[in-house]
Structure formats: C-alpha cells, structure tokens
Design a protein around this nucleic acid. Structure first.
Length: 288
DNA sequence: CACATTTGACCAGG
DNA sequence: CCTGGTCAAATGTG
C-alpha cells in the first residue's frame, strides 16, 4: 500500500501533507477562539483536512484493492478458531487513537456487544483470507479507560503476500501516515474505500500461544487487560492539541467530539486521516 | 455489476 | 446455559 510513489506523486504527497498541516494549524487556532463565531470556519478547516487526507490516501495507494470476498463460498468447517486451543495465533494488542494502516486490508466480518463492556467489539479478518488462506484477524474495541483509544488485538499471521510491501514492524508503521477509519456502511460500505487498515502486523517472533478467549463473563474488557498483565504504553500525541477534538472529526458537530462517544455513531463519519496529527500507538506483546 | 458491510443466527467452549 | 466468535444472506454503494 504505502508502497512506492513516483517522484511526481511523492512531491504531490508532500504538498498535500503541507496543506494539511496548515489546515490543521488553522483549525487549532480557531479552536482557541470563540467556537461559535468560528464554527463555520472550523468546519471549513476540517473539510480541507479531510480532502487532503483523502488525496494523500489515494496517492499512497488508497485506491480500491478489492479482494475476492465471496462470503457464500465459505462453509462452516472450523468455527471458533480463536478460542479453540489448536491455533497458535499470537495475540498482540495495540492501543491507538485510530486504526492505522499497516498495509494489510481488513474486512469486517462481525460485530458483537461484549458483556460488561460499553463498546462493541469489531471483528476483522484479512481480505485475502479466501485467496491466500491468510488467517490473520484482529479485533477492535474502544478502550474502556480512554474512549479515544482503540484496543486492537491481532491474531494469527499474514500468510498472504499482500502485506509484502507493508510487512513492517512497528517502527515502519510510523512511516505510514494514513489511517483508515472503520465505521458504518455510510462511510465505506460498498467497496468505496479500502476496508480497515491497521497498525503493525502481527509479531512473528514467537510470542504467542494461548489464543485469547476473552471469556469476559466476570471481567470487563478493561479488567481483562489488566489481568493479562499487558503493558500497553501510549505515546503522546504529536500535536499538542486535544487529541479527540475536532481535529479528528471531519465534521465538527459530529458525535465524536465528546470523549464517551458512541463508536458506531462516530464511525459513521469517519474517513481517511493522516495519522501524523493523531495520537499514536504503541503496542506491546503479551501472551494471552 | 461486483464487492464490502451489516446484522441476525448459529456454533462451540466454559 | 451463557457468552464470544464466525457465518452468510441481505443490503448498499461506487
């Protein structure tokens, strides 16, 4: 994805990035000013940001990459691969503001309300699962602690070759500035834009085993994490502005401005953003 | 028309 | 029996 850019595209990319930066700065300034008066202007700034992001995303290969996606071709042979002990899937958790691109294309295959958890859990698998039998999956859920963070848990490894240009470690992920948000059909359904992309690919270094079975019967997701003793670290925002503020929202009046937002409502307005201005990641390995 | 998302139902583990 | 994970038909969008 974030593959190679032609020189022209590269410079275009830089320009777009610069434009975006300026818009972001403008918006930040406006945020300091009386919000009511500058409401429209802010909205405009947001719009500009959005456009830049989209353009950047397109430049970086954000075009559609559609996989086969024949749901009908599937049978029901092996369910519950996650919790059934056989899988050697390594679980890796990542916490981040948004789901960042990792060069893999994710396809959502389910969503579930989790007991004692305020936020639904979203299930994704590699788009090329059918093609390459890629078994990588991931789960995304809003953090209970900080609703502006997403807890992304990766399972399995990508066996598809599509990660080739993006099989990166976390460091490289930083080089990939784009974030593809996930959300409702309103934003991305219909194959409009690439599905859910995310941060680092799964670890290949042998952390693994115990597939995660968050039998959360008595433990909220939040606790679940603590229980697991993972050490999730957060990297402070690159931009010192309000992380979950309007900057992140393509429409200022959207629902995603308040911390405890409804992930779904917020998602419906998501689009592609440049991660440079967002909170970033950090990930950690842990065995589940 | 092709393909991705949505969403209710099904299945299996605990 | 409850809950989480996955399936797959229906639906929507480009």
């Amino acid at each position: 994805m974030a593959a190679l850019l032609t020189p022209a595209a590269s410079s275009l990319s830089r320009l777009m990035a610069q434009g975006r930066e300026s818009a972001a700065a403008l918006e930040a300034l406006l945020r300091g000013a009386s919000p009511q008066e500058h409401g429209e202007v802010r909205e405009l700034a947001s719009e500009i940001l959005r456009c830049c992001d989209r353009a950047l995303a397109a430049l970086h290969g954000g075009g559609r990459k559609r996989g086969p996606g024949h749901a009908a071709a599937q049978t029901r042979p092996g369910k519950r691969t996650r919790t059934s002990g056989g899988e050697t899937a390594a679980a890796k958790r990542v916490e981040k503001k948004w789901t960042a691109e990792d060069g893999f294309i994710w396809r959502k295959y389910g969503q579930k309300e989790i007991l004692h958890s305020k936020h639904p859990r979203l299930y994704f698998r590699c788009t090329y699962k059918d093609d390459s039998g890629c078994r990588a999956t991931r789960q995304v859920q809003l953090s209970e602690d900080d609703p502006s963070l997403y807890v992304i848990t990766y399972f399995g490894e990508h066996t598809c070759c599509h990660g080739d240009n993006a099989v990166l470690d976390c460091d490289n992920a930083k080089m990939q500035p784009f974030v593809i948000n996930f959300g409702s059909a309103a934003a991305t359904s219909g194959g409009g834009s690439p599905p859910w992309l995310s941060s680092c690919s799964d670890d290949g270094d042998g952390h693994s085993e115990t597939s995660r079975s968050s039998q959360a019967a008595g433990s909220p997701e939040e606790e679940d994490m603590e229980e697991l003793g993972d050490k999730v670290t957060k990297i402070e925002p690159a931009s010192s502005d309000h992380p979950s503020g309007a900057e992140l929202s393509s429409s200022p009046d959207a629902s995603c401005c308040s911390p405890p937002w409804d992930p779904l409502a917020a998602c419906s307005d998501w689009d592609i953003f440049n991660e440079a201005s967002f909170d970033y990641v950090i990930s950690d390995y842990f065995e589940l």
